[in-house]
């Protein structure tokens, strides 16, 4: 039952993630943290950090990790299968149609609506993650420094994640 549930939850997440790994955040937060409580808020952020530092798409990494944490290797397989199945179905059935109609007003209109919506959704997830992550002034400083560096300088996120991790070891232990 838990396997089926994992599969269905990640199928929904896969089917409604528009625009890359970060767009999954609000959905994962809702389905995994609030509704099913498979992870705590801070575990969820840690898993996201690990997913970003590991090879592979963040969406797949996060699904595999959550599935494994919830129900071992079979859980990892069910969650990953769930998150990739919508891609497989949609690409093999719709991709050619979209390619042939890429100038259609309807398709353009739909995406013109979804793109700003995703920005709003990620901002909301970011706000609730902020409340969990930035618990003292040290965390505030790390957040501000990383934000400014990432906006101003072309640097790989992994470098910044490792940098702040070592800063954490230095500041907190």
């Amino acid at each position: 039952m838990n396997y089926l549930n994992l599969f269905l939850v990640f199928f929904r997440i896969g089917a409604f993630t528009f625009g890359g790994g970060y767009a999954m955040l609000p959905l994962i937060e809702r389905e995994i943290v609030s509704v099913n409580q498979w992870l705590s808020q801070s575990e969820f952020i840690d898993i996201f950090a690990i997913s970003q530092m590991s090879p592979g798409p963040i969406a797949i990494n996060a699904a595999t990790f959550v599935g494994f944490r919830s129900s071992g290797v079979p859980g990892a397989l069910f969650a990953t299968f769930g998150v990739i199945l919508p891609s497989f179905i949609l690409v093999t059935s719709l991709a050619k149609m979209i390619l042939n109609n890429k100038d259609s007003v309807y398709i353009k209109g739909i995406f013109a609506g979804i793109r700003p919506a995703v920005i709003g959704l990620i901002s909301a997830a970011c706000l609730s993650m902020f409340q969990i992550s930035v618990v003292d002034y040290k965390g505030g400083i790390i957040a501000i420094v990383v934000f400014i560096i990432f906006i101003r300088v072309k640097v790989h996120p992994i470098i910044l994640i490792l940098f702040s991790g070592f800063l954490g070891v230095f500041l907190y232990s």
């Binding site: 970003q52 993650m129 965390g139 702040s164």
Partner: peptide, 14 residues
């Protein structure tokens, strides 16, 4: 401690 440092960075990246 490592993850306590990483969490604010993840929020900043997002």
């Amino acid at each position: 401690a490592f993850f306590q440092g990483v969490r604010p960075a993840i929020v900043a990246l997002i």
